[in-house]
Computed example of a mutant assay.
Amino acid sequence: MPVAVVVLRETAAGERRVALTPDVVKKLKARGADVLAEAGAGESAYFSDAALDATQVLDRAGALARADVLLRVQPPDPDEIAGLKAGAVVIAHLQPHRDPERVKALRDRKITAFAMELLPRTTRAQAMDVLSSQAAVAGYKAVLIAAEAAPKFFPMLTTAAGTIRPSKVLVVGAGVAGLQAIATARRLGAQVEGFDVRPETREQIESLGAKFLDLGVSAAGSGGYARELTAEERERQQQALADHLKGIDVVVTTAAVPGRQAPRIVSAAMVAGMKAGAVIVDIAAESGGNCELTEAGRTVVSPNGVSIIGTVNLPASAPIHASEMYARNLYNFLELSLNDGALTLNWDDELIAKTCLTHDGRILHEPTRQLIEGAQS
């Protein structure tokens, strides 16, 4: 029997993406897989059942019961896990550090679960990197939100009433989201600076036409992520940043460390020193925020008139393109194991081995296992 790849309608509040799109369905069928979809699975991303063109369209329970592979955007809920057969494969953004009980349920149900955020950051893995693809959407949308909220134009305008100076925009963090934010702000005509504690990002920031903000502190780390700063380094960085923020109109913060709280970069004291009408858009709001005053899902206005916007799930606000990129990421990962309609997992492949969270009743990701089960004796 061909492997049955299943996609469900996402049920998390505000989630409009879908894990399979029409072009990926065609690719899966060409590889010999059956594609089963819950009725209406793609409607929130504007893909009708007819456009999705799955092999079969079923109700939720029926699709789950048939699933050899379940593709999700958000992690499956307890009922979905219970509805899967033992040994089924789940591929999703699983956020194991946020919900140990979900990990236990996947383990106890003997589900082979792949957490795409655990994917090694290698050249070979780039086409499967859901964090990068979705971060690009977030960086783009964050700047549009900032431009709408700002009480000033982004570009310089020459009018009969005089010349309007461009807004000064600072993007904190030069990962995928930050670089996309810089590029978008530049397209809108703002005067843009980029800041990152990793000195190697200077060339990337400057290649986009922005100025690199050097605060005299380096935190180059491993795997493309920044290391945590020492107390002394943080104090020096924060004082220099506080002084610089006094002249900034818009700040977009994008600094994040997967599986951990977002680093606090913009303090309440820094906000108090900013000018009235300034705007901060915090992409990291869901993991605690880069700004001390950020509240996820809310806009907070400081006593001195600075708006701090705590964005949540920005990729869901561009569901068509975000879904297309996400679905391609999942397909490229699944393709490693899919041959002539059969699924064969190669545990010698580091992309498969290191992305696996649970398998055959065990938690394979060691940090998660220690969090849940403790160190083995």
Rank of each mutant, 00 (worst) to 15 (best):
I308R: 00
L345C: 07
P166D: 12
A125V: 09
T253Q: 01
M274I: 02
L345Y: 06
K26Y: 14
S317L: 15
D99S: 10
T344L: 15
R202K: 13
V5G: 03
G40T: 14
E80G: 05
L118M: 13
A375K: 14
P151E: 12
S133L: 08
R298G: 06
L58I: 11
E10I: 09
G189F: 10
R264N: 04
S323I: 07
K26L: 13
A19Q: 03
F212Q: 04
E43W: 08
Q237P: 02
G189C: 09
V3M: 12
N329R: 04
L188T: 07
F114L: 06
S167K: 04
G223M: 09
L28K: 01
R72K: 09
G216Q: 06
L106D: 00
V176L: 13
V300P: 00
Q261L: 10
D349Q: 08
P151G: 10
G289F: 01
L371C: 07
I164T: 13
Q74A: 13
E148R: 12
H93N: 11
V176D: 02
G247S: 09
A147G: 05
E235P: 03
S302T: 13
G247F: 08
V89H: 03
E228Y: 15
I248Y: 01
R66K: 14
P22I: 04
V143L: 10
D79A: 14
I205G: 02
T158L: 15
P303K: 14
T254A: 12
P166A: 11
G14D: 08
N329D: 12
V7W: 01
G194M: 03
G259T: 08
E206P: 10
V73E: 02
K152W: 15
R72A: 02
R124P: 01
G341L: 07
T21D: 02
V73L: 06
R107I: 11
T158C: 15
E228A: 15
S44I: 08
I372Q: 06
A183Q: 05
V6F: 04
G42Q: 02
T122V: 15
Q126R: 11
R109G: 06
G224I: 05
R9D: 04
P22E: 06
D360A: 11
T201K: 11
I363R: 04
L94C: 06
L28M: 12
F154V: 07
D360R: 14
S337P: 05
V143A: 05
T294Q: 02
Q370S: 11
P199H: 14
T158I: 15
R234Q: 09
R31G: 08
V192F: 08
F212E: 03
H365W: 14
A220P: 04
I265A: 02
A226N: 04
A65Q: 12
S44D: 12
I111T: 09
V130N: 09
Y326F: 15
T122S: 15
Q191H: 12
D23M: 13
L371G: 08
R328F: 12
E235Y: 10
D79E: 14
A240Y: 02
F114E: 03
F195M: 08
I205S: 03
T158V: 13
M1S: 11
D348W: 11
A88G: 07
K275D: 07
V35Q: 00
V171Q: 02
S133T: 13
